[in-house]
Design a protein around this nucleic acid. Structure first.
Lengths: 216, 216
DNA sequence: CCCATTTCTGACCATATAGTCAAATTCACG
DNA sequence: CGTGAATTTGACTATATGGTCAGAAATGGG
């Protein structure tokens, strides 16, 4: 059965199991939605008996909640890059790059997030009202300052942020459609570079930042 | 089986019932997803007994399929405005306006569409491969021509289209998030005007079209 | 009014699924 | 080892849900 080559500790083992379940759950929730997902499917994908899931996560909703919260953390971490640059060009370019990377390597998470919000955010409404609202207001003020300083065109900061979210997340949430329009094949490395460059080109030009010949 | 010029009253009634069911179904599918939606809920919202739904639509999937196809038709009709203008500025502005209007007045449809695509388009995969692919390629060529003629910046037409879709549909699919960030209130008339103007401003500037006449 | 056709509906069934539980197994540690 | 705690799991239950159906009710032409 289990090879005695490596003996993980109890806590280690527990964390590994939970991570395994969460990974499977994220995929199934993304593919089938909360209502369409079944604990049995998640269990199969995680390679565990269903009853075992209920040992780690008492209910389907608790499992789902954990998945959504994890995604929110990733989202927040990516948002940090917005602050690590000191000008609009670098900040927004870095933010686009970060979010496009998430869309590429974490599409299931983005889909679960989209689904949650589309259904009225029953689980993370409080996050929207607190953390997300604060982050958005803070960033809107930063953008407003850049505008005052004449470092970018006057645009509504909110709608600029919405456009950034919409565009970058589209590559995850609608990856199936994009793949179909790409002849049924996933975007290649260079196509992803094109995507990132295109998004940055249009948005940066759109807010009046002359992109002096940058690459991906 | 042959119905020689049946009574119009009866047909009318049938159409009214079907429309009523489809409207309720669209809302429930949008709010709960396919898996989370129940025929009972749809029936209640339509004000009809559940068994009556199955008289008009044999299965839940058939009902869902009809809802998705209707949305696709609306989508296609809006896409027409792309061709009724003769230059990139007018065409893209009109397209943005049309799609924003749909997002505003038909958010449930947009959500069902998004959900369908996110889950791998099990129902409308053939539409993606035929109609949508053809439309996209045609429009990409039109954009390419505009670029050749020097009427707009050189951008990847595909990614421009994706950005248009993503941004406009975001106002429908994520309307709950936007509402939350707007202090819990839906966007007012003037806020919708701002949204449309902002999207047009950034994208048109982003592709190198100096927007002389602003306003919504 | 009569009859054929269409429409409606309550009651019912088969199935799927979230969640439970107690017994079995494994683990940590002295 | 021995022991108690943590974990695993097959079998089970309760319930929700999609779909069926037979018969009632309405509809409309002759």
């Amino acid at each position: 059965m289990n090879l005695p080559a490596k003996r993980p500790g109890q806590k280690e083992r527990r964390r590994e199991r939970e991570a395994r379940i969460l990974k499977a759950a994220e995929k199934v929730f993304a593919e089938a939605g909360f209502g369409g997902a079944t604990m049995q499917l998640i269990a199969d994908m995680a390679g565990l008996p269903k009853a075992n899931l209920h040992y780690y996560f008492p209910t389907k909703e608790a499992l789902y909640r954990q998945v959504v919260q994890n995604i929110f953390q990733i989202w927040l971490r990516a948002a940090d890059v917005f602050d690590s640059a000191d000008g609009p060009a670098e900040a927004i370019a870095a933010y686009i790059d970060a979010k496009m990377e998430i869309s590429r390597h974490h599409p299931a998470g983005s889909k679960v997030w989209a689904s949650e919000v589309m259904h009225g955010a029953p689980v993370i409404q409080d996050y929207l009202e607190t953390t997300l609202t604060e982050w958005t207001e803070g960033r809107a003020q930063v953008i407003e300052r850049w505008i005052e300083e004449g470092r970018m065109n006057r645009v509504d900061p909110r709608h600029l942020l919405y456009m950034l979210w919409a565009t970058t997340q589209h590559y995850a949430d609608f990856n199936h459609q994009i793949e179909t329009l790409n002849g049924g094949k996933p975007l290649s490395d260079s196509q992803w570079d094109d995507a990132k460059a295109s998004v940055k080109q249009i948005i940066l030009a759109g807010i009046g930042i002359s992109d002096a010949g940058k690459g991906g």
